[in-house]
Design a protein around this nucleic acid. Structure first.
Lengths: 187, 187
DNA sequence: GTTTGACATGTAATTCTTGACACGTCAAGC
DNA sequence: GCTTGACGTGTCAAGAATTACATGTCAAAC
């Protein structure tokens, strides 16, 4: 049920096509709620049939531009207000960390370094998005800005954590009789 | 495909029943990969039929204790080494932040404060887990320790971010003509 | 004795998500 | 004229995940 509200939100901010949504989603909401176009198009059709969005224009190559209706905005409000909040996180990259002890120490370290490069990439991408996009354009943009900031802090923290974890592993934490990682002060 | 490796990993660390797994999962891996017992039991049956785990004991009330076989451990290694890494994050709580601009400022602030309490709760729970569990017991435990530390930093960062976002919203960021959140130095 | 609550394992229907397939348009470069 | 690549919309089958259903055991409190 989350995807639909993401779409409603983006289309309330500015009119867009499914194609645009698929791309824009990847850059903003896609960081916390991935969605493929194969999921987006059917959902748009459904939202339109429920009157929560309307097609307000068309373009070349069958392009269809949608926009959220007042009823659609009200649906977002109802969702925020009434539905139970789901705080669960799904993050495979971290699940894999639980398993690292089955690898030799050097391989585990190499594993984390590859992850680290990925987090640097994500961070760069967010910094670029912060620099290139006009985040003052509208209330919707400024809300996105807040969420993007979360991503920025997330990846910064992530990189720091990788370095810390690598230290621990290098010290032999994952091998029998190795030292226990200390409870360090953070923040 | 991730769940099975989570189960293999836990059962490689120590023998457990499906019931134990469901509870233990919630406390550790569940923070990054939620799973219900209705998904765990069928997966255990499948893993057993593939020879990646074996039932090594039983207890009262039909309790079945499983353990990962050497082939199962090898399957974890193959997964870590060969399969494509998935860095995607699914986190509804953050998706909702993108939508906050449709609420009045005071309601958006109240919304975030309720979230904040939840993150405090998560942080407390992780700190308790760190204090109460013996994380030196085995290489598997010490790997978990590293992942739990990630969660700890995650929720600390999360709370700091909420406070920052609340400041921005209080300053009127989400309303037409409001100020743009600044790019602040972090870390 | 019986009730309550934690222990314990499963199945079934529905919904969500992914990945592959499928089709067609338009502009630019060769 | 043709090819390439981005644009653009969609469907379908398979797999993953959630929710509700379903059943039964055991110990302790009443």
């Amino acid at each position: 049920m989350s995807l639909r509200y993401g779409l409603l939100d983006l289309l309330a901010g500015e009119p867009m096509s499914g194609y645009d949504l698929a791309r824009y989603f990847t850059l903003s909401m896609g960081n916390v709620w991935p969605a493929q176009h194969s999921q987006i198009y059917p959902e748009l059709a459904k939202l339109a049939s429920e009157g929560l969005i309307t097609q307000t224009g068309e373009g070349p190559r069958g392009r269809k531009v949608y926009q959220t209706t007042p009823a659609g905005v009200e649906a977002i409000r109802a969702w925020l207000r009434a539905s139970e909040r789901d705080y669960s996180v799904r993050y495979e990259a971290l699940l894999r960390v639980f398993c690292l002890w089955v690898l030799p120490t050097d391989e585990a370290l190499a594993y984390l370094q590859r992850d680290r490069a990925e987090y640097e990439r994500h961070l760069d991408q967010l910094e670029k998005a912060l620099a290139n996009h006009d985040w003052a354009a509208s209330p919707a943009s400024r809300a996105s800005r807040l969420a993007i900031e979360f991503g920025r802090r997330f990846y910064k923290m992530h990189i720091e954590w990788v370095d810390w974890a690598a230290e621990q592993i290098a010290a032999g934490t994952l091998k029998p009789g190795g030292p226990l990682p200390p409870v360090t002060a953070v923040g």
